[in-house]
Design a protein around this nucleic acid. Structure first.
Length: 799
DNA sequence: GCGATCAGAT
DNA sequence: CACATCTGATCGC
């Protein structure tokens, strides 16, 4: 393969940097002539010089700038000129290019060259943006011109063993050597591609769409709401149909079986053997990149074949076994089968309306799936196909018409099979991928053929997919997850439901009743996607026994216990605060947990905050002291959407106060089925001196203003900010040492009230469960954290 | 106009 | 630091 000239020397203009970040969003303006053709060029022009047309719209520096539009780029002194106010921003030596390649490439080779160059020069150092599997595939498919390709035919062999790697960059190597960051073993290390600080999908997990502040604005379904509050209320019409009547749950079917005593050969079979010798490769697989669903069904979590998993046949595979025959639950427990695939008539008619081509494709898809089934390929039944160029052609979703116009990459049947193809499909809709031309033919629509980088494929991280099941947990911001048949939501906090919106259409959502109610109320998700589950009840979903258990986090939060037909027992804690009473859960007593997905928020011995009870008692003490000193004290407690209720309820009970909260919060709290709490609620600020406020409201300025707005009732404010981060080792459990921030009449106490487990609680919980392995779900973004947590897990399980 | 997403701030 | 948002800007239908 001849070597193509690198089309854009990104490296010299945007040298690597660790911290600062220049995020370039390619969008629009291909081929646009420069408005000022002298020494200033548009970025598109720079690209044109080397057959690469880059269009950059937005710049983000590591700190300070919230995105400025780039109008022009001054080649001479590396300055960008923004669209807003003609500001000139010099690019620093250490400004880093994160992304920015857009479409408009003249030919594939240039793309490849450019991508590789970008990988070497910019992407590889990126903390985010480029998923590892995309990189892998880039390199496996396009390892020219930096190095000749010598693909092996042995498809079962390791990717990393069969590819010729790009030439090492001396500069990169040098940089690697004096850096503290760790590298995934495997190709990444060998090729000196650095992936620091990335999560398992190669992206940092980012903050999500806020649930409340924004929802109200977007909820004007009546069209004529006069205020945001009204709009919010309109949208949050309570979905009684969800909760009042079994028959009314949209299209979901709940079959109450009562007391079947069927013995189940599959459930009683020897559990899949877990290879114990594969820690290293598991670690790599887990932390370095995405995995695919097929692997989850054919291999254990370590990526090794599940030796004793049942041989599947058409009459005996996990998914086709009639769920009723799978029932092997305590006859006293109410039990139901839930069929997540059921589609409503409305959705069916939408599918029909998509026209023959779609239907044909879909039928072909189904056919191919069923024929594979006969071959006993469970993975294909579960929606996954092996790498094959044509696979990505078939859309999996069958919902909204708008999806047809959407690039297929959002939900390709085989996103994993060609992540890079999807990636490039978004990047470069006009030009076929080498060797995969068919993938994109006829799939393009819309605009000028440009797509912004914001549409980069986001892969669901490995730890959100439950092995041996077609389920994900708290994975809503990845679009349709390949092969996922049911989406589980542990609780209603925005970092867990992020991505869930009223336009959700990727599959049924399983959660507790309270959570379902909140999702419906606040996010406007159509109730036909929701499957509210009672705490403690066993359900069979896709042949997997599923049980939700109280998580002691926020109202509606649940631990989820999965038991697969081949005997794997998985506990996902969601967010939880472990406590003694969890050791009495009959479902957990003596359970042989295969995998424990653990909320590791405070998995560090320095976090040993006091019991919630003690904190509440202390808060009550402080409050009553303050009130006796000054009866005109306004007492406020900060809270997010839900959570921390026990703090203000504690005060209210002890001091016989009502609880004021704004209308929206009252509405939310009333949805929690918590009579003790709701009985005390009021939405009239003058009815109580105890107010619940958004936690962001708890600063001296805002509180003073707030107090003055209630003038002349109050002359002082006492505020509590309950969060685990308040905890300091110095104070430990000695709450009387807590010192408030005082600012005039405002007194703010940060109190170590945590709704996550402390270190010792985590330790005790893990020791009690003795799972075969523990998987962290929080703080996995940094290698140092992961290693530290793993060391703790190991220690706990040793003794 | 409006829903969705993202970066940055808190 | 990291939780759980909140805010403002932007994109795209």
């Amino acid at each position: 393969m001849e070597e193509a000239a690198c089309t854009l020397d990104i490296k010299c203009k945007f040298p690597l940097a660790k911290k600062k970040r220049l995020s370039l969003r390619g969008h629009g303006v291909p081929q646009q002539p420069s408005r000022n053709a002298s020494s200033q060029k548009t970025l598109a022009d720079i690209g044109a010089e080397g057959d690469l047309k880059i269009s950059i719209q937005q710049v983000n520096f590591g700190s300070g700038t919230t995105g400025s539009n780039i109008e022009q780029f001054d080649d001479q002194d590396c300055t960008i000129i923004t669209r807003n106010g003609n500001e000139r921003i010099p690019l620093q030596e250490d400004t880093q290019l994160v992304s920015g390649i857009s479409e408009g490439l003249q030919n594939d080779r240039d793309l490849i060259t450019t991508v590789e160059q970008a990988l070497l020069d910019g992407f590889c150092d990126a903390e985010e943006e480029l998923p590892l599997d995309v990189l892998e595939e880039v390199l496996s498919q396009y390892d020219r011109p930096l190095a000749p390709c010598s693909k092996s035919d042995n498809s079962s062999g390791s990717f990393f063993d069969t590819k010729v790697v790009p030439q090492e960059s001396a500069a990169l190597r040098e940089e690697l050597e004096d850096t503290k960051y760790t590298y995934a073993e495997s190709a990444i290390d060998r090729k000196h591609f650095r992936f620091e600080e990335c999560d398992v999908s190669g992206r940092m997990v980012q903050g999500c769409k806020p649930g409340f502040g924004k929802a109200n604005r977007s909820c004007s379904i009546s069209g004529g709401s006069s205020s945001t509050q009204d709009a919010f209320d309109d949208s949050s019409a309570f979905r009684d149909d969800l909760f009042l009547c079994e028959d009314n749950k949209g299209a979901s079917i709940a079959v109450l079986l009562g007391t079947h005593e069927l013995s189940d050969p599959q459930l009683n079979e020897t559990p899949c053997e877990i290879s114990g010798s594969a820690d290293l490769s598991f670690k790599n697989a887990f932390y370095a990149g995405g995995t695919d669903w097929s692997a989850l069904h054919e291999v254990d979590e370590y990526g090794f074949p599940c030796a004793s998993s049942p041989q599947l046949s058409s009459e005996h595979d996990c998914a086709s076994i009639d769920a009723e025959k799978l029932m092997n639950v305590d006859s006293r427990i109410q039990c139901k089968i839930v069929r997540p695939e059921t589609i409503s008539e409305a959705v069916k008619s939408q599918i029909t309306s998509l026209g023959p081509s779609f239907k044909e494709e879909n039928n072909a898809n189904l056919l191919s799936r069923s024929s594979k089934l006969k071959q006993g390929d469970l993975s294909s039944f579960l929606g996954f196909k092996r790498k094959s160029p044509v696979d990505a052609k078939v859309p999996q979703k069958k919902t909204h018409q708008q999806d047809i116009g959407t690039y297929f990459g959002l939900a390709p049947l085989a996103k994993q099979a060609s992540t890079a193809a999807s990636f490039f499909a978004k990047l470069r809709p006009r030009f076929p991928t080498p060797g995969r031309a068919s993938i994109e033919d006829g799939q393009r629509t819309g605009n000028n053929g440009w797509k912004s980088n914001r549409e980069t494929v986001k892969n669901c991280p490995f730890y959100k997919k439950m092995p041996g099941t077609p389920f994900t947990v708290d994975a809503f911001k990845f679009g349709a997850v390949e092969g996922c048949k049911a989406y589980f939501l542990t609780h209603f906090h925005s970092d867990h439901y992020g991505g869930l919106t009223r336009s959700w259409s990727h599959g049924p959502i399983f959660c507790t009743e309270i959570t379902a109610r909140l999702v419906s109320m606040h996010l406007g998700v159509d109730s036909h996607w929701l499957r509210p589950m009672k705490l403690g009840c066993v359900s069979i979903v896709e042949g997997v026994k599923v049980q939700f258990l109280e998580a002691n986090h926020c109202p509606g939060a649940a631990l989820i216990l999965f038991q697969t037909s081949c005997g794997q027992l998985i506990l996902h804690t969601g967010d939880f605060r472990a406590c003694k009473s969890m050791q009495d859960y009959p479902e957990l007593l003596g359970a042989r947990i295969t995998s424990l997905y653990l909320d590791t928020t405070y998995c560090n011995p320095k976090y040993n905050f006091p019991l919630q009870e003690d904190v509440i008692n202390h808060v009550v003490k402080l409050t009553s002291a303050a009130l006796s000193r000054n009866p005109k004290t306004l007492v406020t407690v900060g809270a997010y959407s839900i959570g921390k209720e026990r703090v203000y309820l504690g005060i209210a009970k002890a001091l016989s106060l009502r609880i004021y909260a704004d209308k929206r919060r009252v509405r939310t709290l009333r949805a929690l089925d918590w009579p003790d709490l709701t009985d005390r609620l009021c939405s009239d600020a003058s009815s109580s001196r105890l107010h619940v406020l958004p936690i962001s409201h708890l600063n001296a300025t805002k509180l003073r203003a707030y107090m003055q707005s209630l003038h002349p009732t109050y002359s002082a404010v006492l505020a509590f900010r309950p969060t685990g981060w308040t905890y300091s080792e110095k104070i430990g459990s000695n709450l009387s040492e807590l010192k408030p921030q005082r600012s005039g009449v405002v007194t703010i106490y940060g109190v170590p009230y945590s709704e996550h487990s402390s270190y010792s609680e985590l330790q005790e919980f893990v020791k009690f469960l003795r799972p075969q392995k523990v998987l962290a779900t929080v703080n996995v973004g940094r290698a140092a954290h992961r290693e530290s947590m793993e060391a703790h897990f190991k220690k706990w399980l040793k003794c």
